[in-house]
Simulated scan of single mutants.
Amino acid sequence: MGVIHQQLALEDVTPGMVLADNLLDAQGQTLLPKGAELSEQMLESLRRHNIASLRIFMGELSEEESAAQRAYLQARMARLFRNSDDEDANGLLHRYVRKFRLGEQA
């Protein structure tokens, strides 16, 4: 099943919300891990560090919603890459995008 996440401004984030992705600093070090439940103290610390927004977990898609999203993405990628040959650079990009978006092998 897929997940629903939303990028929220820090002032719209409330204690108890859950991070959808790792929160990294400018050097790539993890400040907070994916799945961390945010507390008021964490939010205050993020405000002091001038964090503007966070990607927040909002729920999971049902199997039907997940299948519909997958079908939409497959159709969209087929349209975007309709003129690419599997052997050219666009074909390579297409395979990597499929792997990223759909979890397919590149």
Rank of each mutant, 00 (worst) to 15 (best):
R76Q: 14
L54E: 02
E63R: 15
A67L: 12
I51G: 00
M77Q: 10
L80I: 10
A78G: 08
A71M: 11
R70Q: 14
L54K: 03
M77E: 10
R55W: 11
M77L: 15
M77W: 10
R76L: 13
R55F: 11
Y72W: 13
F81Q: 05
F57C: 05
R70K: 14
L80K: 09
A67H: 06
A68R: 06
E64F: 04
S62L: 01
A67I: 03
R76C: 11
E60W: 02
L54A: 01
F81D: 05
Q74C: 08
F81A: 05
G59I: 01
G59R: 00
S62W: 02
A52V: 15
M58A: 11
S62V: 01
L54V: 02
A52W: 09
G59C: 01
E63N: 14
L80S: 09
L54N: 01
A75M: 07
L54F: 02
A68I: 06
R82M: 13
E60S: 03
A71V: 11
A78T: 09
F81R: 06
F57D: 04
E60D: 07
R82I: 12
R55L: 15
S66M: 01
A68H: 06
A52T: 14
R82N: 12
M58I: 08
A75V: 04
I56R: 01
E60A: 05
I51S: 01
A78R: 10
I51P: 02
R70L: 07
M58K: 15
R79M: 13
E60Y: 03
E65A: 10
A75P: 00
S62E: 03
L54D: 03
S66Y: 00
M58Y: 04
G59P: 00
G59E: 01
F57M: 05
F57H: 08
M77H: 11
Q74G: 03
G59D: 00
A71L: 12
A52Q: 13
E63Y: 13
A71I: 09
S62T: 09
A67W: 03
R79V: 12
S66F: 02
S53K: 09
R55Q: 14
F81C: 05
L80G: 06
E64S: 09
R79F: 13
E60Q: 08
Q74W: 03
R82E: 14
